[in-house]
């Protein structure tokens, strides 16, 4: 999930365009990490030093790592350690953007440093997928800090993104949220959680995205929106909400219930209290999640 929010960070800081980011997300599965980016990320080399080695490599027939050692930038142990580490997803995204020329090594250095500083992230946090750090990013990114029920919004949306990665795919970028009093779309699926508090949750999008989302969850091809497609998308919402309700019960002893899902075609849902609209840009298009907790 750190990769998706790193993508959003690059987008929000206008370091990449939405099209470039979408292409890089698609390409990163074929990307191989290079030592320069790994060394910059680890804080062992600056972008200038990496460029220096790149230039030096043009006139000397040596491997990048050996040259780094010769020039005194890295030790052999550094090279071995960096090359043996499993690359994290956000690094693959960064490497892809460096490879296709969208970011220079210097751009990557400043972006990764600013991203880590903004959310106080260490490499260990990222490698271990630290839940509290993920929640902190979600809370800050979607401006839940000032919302009433900030904890619930944060927990819910953090779980939602984990389940999107688990069931739909990791090729998405969360976009800036906004507050709305109405959700309107070609297709909307809603489910209400009720008990100590009430949460109205909707997923909304046009038909092409609705079908693509359902296809990803069901792992089968669908040609049109029918009752079966509705139920697939509804089941995603039901599974996610169920897991949230179970977490609340197990961790905090809060007992909540779920209502059956409702489906709307070419219509809208009005919220008494304003809802957070959380758009998510997938490779197949944009899907919006609406969440109102009272």
């Amino acid at each position: 999930m750190f990769a998706q929010f790193f993508g959003a960070f690059l987008l929000n800081n206008q370091l990449v365009s939405p099209e470039t980011l979408a292409q890089a997300i698609d390409d990163k599965k074929n990307t191989r990490m290079r030592l320069g980016v790994l060394a910059i990320n680890a804080g062992l080399m600056t972008a200038d030093q990496v460029e220096h080695v790149n230039v030096a490599q043009q006139s000397v027939d040596k491997r990048f790592g050996d040259l780094c050692v010769d020039l005194g930038y890295l030790t052999s142990a550094d090279v071995d350690r960096l090359l043996s580490e499993q690359p994290t997803d956000y690094l693959l995204l960064g490497q892809t953007l460096v490879n296709n020329g969208s970011l220079s090594n210097a751009d990557f250095e400043s972006a990764i440093s600013a991203y880590k500083a903004k959310y106080q992230l260490s490499d260990d946090d990222i490698s271990n997928n630290q839940n509290d750090k993920l929640s902190a990013i979600v809370k800050d990114f979607f401006h839940f800090n000032t919302a009433e029920n900030a904890r619930i919004y944060t927990e819910y949306v953090t779980l939602l993104f984990k389940n999107i990665i688990r069931f739909i795919g990791d090729d998405f970028t969360p976009l800036e949220s906004c507050m709305v009093s109405e959700a309107e779309a070609e297709y909307i699926v809603c489910q209400t959680i009720h008990g100590k508090y009430n949460a109205e949750i909707c997923l909304a999008c046009p038909s092409a995205e609705y079908i693509a989302f359902a296809e990803r969850f069901a792992k089968e091809e669908l040609s049109e929106v029918d009752e079966y497609t509705n139920e697939i998308v509804g089941e995603f919402l039901n599974v996610n909400n169920g897991l949230f309700v179970v977490n609340e019960s197990n961790q905090l002893g809060i007992e909540l219930s779920l209502d059956p899902q409702t489906y709307i075609h070419n219509g809208s849902v009005k919220y008494g209290n304003k809802a957070f609209c959380i758009p998510v840009a997938f490779a197949f298009g944009e899907v919006e999640f609406f969440i109102s907790i009272t």
């Binding site: 039901n238 169920g242 309700v245 179970v246 002893g253």
Partner: peptide, 25 residues
């Protein structure tokens, strides 16, 4: 076999004699 395997649902199901409980997914 449900998405809502909360403590209260589990208790209810056990009291009523459910054979087992499976959490969705």
């Amino acid at each position: 076999a449900s998405s809502v395997g909360t403590q209260s649902h589990l208790k209810q199901a056990i009291v009523l004699g459910a054979y087992d409980f499976v959490q969705k997914p």
